[in-house]
Design a binder for these strands. Structure first.
Lengths: 364, 364
DNA sequence: CTGAAAGCGCTAACAC
DNA sequence: GTGTTAGCGCTTTCAG
C-alpha cells in the first residue's frame, strides 16, 4: 500500500477534457472568463476523475497557505482545550486550516523550532494560546527569528504593540471578594494558583487589594500557594485550617482547588455556606453538581479562542491588501460571577443560581 | 505589514555562498558528498541569512508532507482532549506535524470535505479520533473518495481490515460490576450513556450480562439513559430513586453522571458507601476529591493517542518502502478499576485507594 | 565532489 | 475565451 496517492493532477484533467491546464485552473477558481460549454465539460471531467487540486502547490505559488499555526499547552486540562475548541470552529468557518503544536510544558521557552516549523510551512498567522507562565515570554524581547508573520497571543500581560486576547482576571476576582463580603464573611483566606502564572498573580492581587481597602491586614498565614490541582488544594486548605482558625471563607484561584476545600469542609462537618463560604474560579462543567454547588467565575474561553482567530484573520487579510487594521490591538473579556450554594446563605435554601453580569455590578 | 515574508530562498543562499542550489540542498539534508570546506562555508551563510527551507516545496517534490491529519470532536470535554494531547506529543516526537479538524458534533457524517482537505494538503496519514456514535461510520461502507491514505481509528467497534485503537469498555464495566457484588451490593442500578454511542452500549452490556449471570432479572426501572452530562445524571438518579427503591448501588457510565448521584445521595442523607455504592467511569482528575471520593475506571486516553500515532507512522513508513506492516491491525487497551470510598466499605475508614489491575482480576 | 537541467502541481501574466 | 510561458522553492537525476 504505497503512500503515494495517484490522484489526478491538473495536467491529466486538462488532457482528458481537451483543454489547457489554465482553463482547468480557471474553472476550479470560478473565474468568469470561461465559456459555459467549456466550463461544463471541464466540470464533468473533474467530477469523473475526482480531481482535487493540491493546496500545497497553490500555497507555493500564491505565497499564501490559508493555514494558521496554533501553539497550546496543557491540553489535558479543560481550560486550554476549551480555548482550542473555539479556535477550531472559528478557523473552519474562516476557511483556514490549523497546524497544531502542544508545548511539553506551560513554561517552555524553547520556541525557535516551533517558529521555524511554522515559517517553513508558510503559515499565514500564528495564535499563541499558551498562558503567560514564568519566563515563557522572554523570547519576545529578542525574537529568535525576525517574524514577518502576524501573531496573536491569548492570556498574557499587556505589552506594547502586541495583539492580545485576554480575560480580566483581576475584575473577576474583585467580584468574588465583593460578593463574599456582601454575604457577611469577614476572614477570607486565599488559595492562589502557582505565582509564576500571570493569571494567578492577578487573582491574588484582587484578593489583597480588597482586603486592604477593607482595612484588613494581610498576614502570611492567610493564604497558601497551590498549583491548580485538587491535591494541592487539599494540602493548602489543611494548612489554612490550622494556621488561620478564624477563617470563615476561602477564595480559591480555581474550581479544582475549591473542590478540595469543599471536601475538607465536608470531612470536618463544617456547614457550607452557613459557617464557611467557598468560591472558585473557571466554572468547570461539574461545578454546579458539587455538594454544595460551587460559586465561581465564568470565563468564555471558547469565545476567546474564536476572537483570536477572527483577529488574526483580519490582520492577515489586511496585510494582504496592504491596508491597516484600525481597531484596538487587544481585547479584554469580562468574566461573570456565578453565585451558587457554596457562598450564598440565601441560595442554599432555594437551590438555584445567580449570575452576576459585571455590567450591573461594576457600573459599566 | 505584508504577510509575504521575505526570508531567503535556497537560490539566494546558493548565490551568497557561491555554490549551486544542489549543494545547499545537500548540506541541508546532511548528504555526505560535500567537501568539508564547502559545507562549512554554506553552513555559515545559512546561519547568517537565517535560511529555513520551505516544507511546502519539499513536500511537493517528495510527495511526502510529514503531516498527519487529525479529526476530533468535543474538545470541550476532557476525554477527547486527553487523547489529542497524547497525539500531539507522539507526533512531535515522530517528526510529524498535525493538521487538526474538530467536527461540529460527534455524530457528524459529513466527512467528504474533510477528507478532500486532507488529500489536498497531502497528509501522509489520518487519525480519526472521534468515538463511534450513531451513523458516524456509515461513510466507511462506501468511501466518498477512494482513500489511498492510511487511516487509524480510535474507539470504535472492530471492523474487518481497519486499524483501530480502542479500550475494552466491556471489560472495565465487568470489573465494576464484579467489585460491587463483592462489596455486598445486591440491587445495582445503571445510568447509561446515550445509547447511540458504541461505548455506552458496551458499558451497559456488561451491566446486563453480569446481572443475568447472577440470575437477576433486568427490569426497565433498573436503569435510565443519560447523555454523559452531570445534569442528565441528576435527572436519572431522581427517576431511579423513585422507581427502584430497593436499589443499593449505581453504576454510572461516566464520572460526571456519577457525581450527580453522589450529590443526590448527599442531599438525601444517604450514607455512601455504607448504604449505597457508587461507581463511575473515566477517572476525572477531580474524582479523587469528590466527597466521598469516587470509584471509577481508568482509561489511558493519552496513551491511546500515542499508540494511534505510532501505528499510523509505522504504516506510513512501511508503505514508503513498500513493505508490509506485519503486526495486528488493532490494539485494545485494558482499563483499570480504581476503588475509592464511594464503593468500598473498608476504604471509607482508611481513606486510601486501590487500583485493581485486570491482570490480577481476570486471570490474564 | 559539484553543477545543470528537469519537474513536483499549480497559477500569474501575457499573448492570441 | 483560451493557450503559452514562466516560475513558486525545492529535490532528483544525471553529467562531468
Amino acid at each position: 500500500m504505497p503512500v503515494k496517492s495517484n490522484r489526478p493532477t491538473i495536467k491529466q484533467v486538462a488532457a482528458a477534457a481537451g483543454v489547457s491546464t489554465q482553463t482547468v485552473s480557471r474553472v476550479m477558481n470560478d473565474r468568469p472568463d470561461v465559456s459555459p460549454e467549456t466550463r461544463e465539460r471541464v466540470l464533468r471531467v473533474i467530477n469523473e476523475m475526482g480531481y482535487q487540486p493540491s493546496a500545497l502547490a497553490r500555497s507555493l505559488i500564491q505565497q499564501r497557505s490559508y493555514t494558521l499555526g496554533v501553539v497550546t499547552a496543557g491540553l489535558k486540562y479543560i481550560g486550554p482545550s476549551r480555548t482550542l475548541s473555539g479556535i477550531t470552529s472559528a478557523a473552519e468557518q474562516a476557511g483556514y486550516s490549523l497546524l497544531l503544536i502542544e508545548l511539553p510544558s506551560f513554561d517552555s521557552n524553547h520556541v525557535l523550532p516551533i517558529l521555524q516549523g511554522f515559517i517553513s510551512r508558510h503559515v499565514d498567522g500564528i495564535i499563541w494560546a499558551v498562558q503567560e507562565v514564568g519566563q515563557n515570554r522572554d523570547w519576545l524581547k529578542s525574537p529568535p527569528v525576525d517574524l514577518e508573520i502576524p501573531i496573536v497571543f491569548l492570556t498574557m500581560e499587556p505589552r506594547e504593540g502586541i495583539s492580545i486576547i485576554s480575560v480580566d482576571n483581576y475584575l473577576g476576582s474583585r467580584m468574588v471578594m465583593a460578593h463574599l463580603f456582601e454575604q457577611g464573611y469577614q476572614n477570607i483566606g486565599h488559595i492562589s494558583g502557582p505565582l509564576d502564572w500571570w493569571e494567578a498573580r492577578q487573582r491574588m492581587a484582587a484578593w489583597k487589594d480588597t482586603l486592604k481597602e477593607k482595612g484588613i491586614a494581610i498576614k502570611e498565614n492567610h493564604w497558601v500557594e497551590g498549583n491548580w490541582s485538587a491535591s494541592s488544594g487539599a494540602r493548602a486548605i489543611q494548612v489554612l485550617f490550622e494556621k488561620y482558625p478564624e477563617m470563615d471563607a476561602v477564595f480559591a484561584a480555581n474550581d479544582q482547588m475549591a473542590l478540595s476545600v469543599l471536601q475538607a469542609a465536608c470531612a470536618r462537618n463544617i456547614r457550607v455556606p452557613q459557617d464557611f463560604g467557598i468560591v472558585g474560579f473557571d466554572n468547570l462543567e461539574e461545578s454546579p453538581y458539587f455538594c454544595p454547588s460551587l460559586s465561581t467565575v465564568q470565563v468564555e474561553q471558547q469565545n476567546m479562542g474564536k476572537a483570536a482567530v477572527e483577529r488574526i484573520v483580519r490582520i492577515i487579510e489586511a496585510g494582504w491588501q496592504n491596508s491597516e487594521v484600525n481597531e484596538p490591538l487587544s481585547v479584554v473579556f469580562k468574566p461573570t460571577l456565578v453565585i451558587r450554594e457554596s457562598s450564598s446563605k440565601q441560595l442554599i435554601q432555594e437551590k438555584k443560581e445567580v449570575i452576576t453580569e459585571i455590567i450591573n455590578e461594576f457600573g459599566g
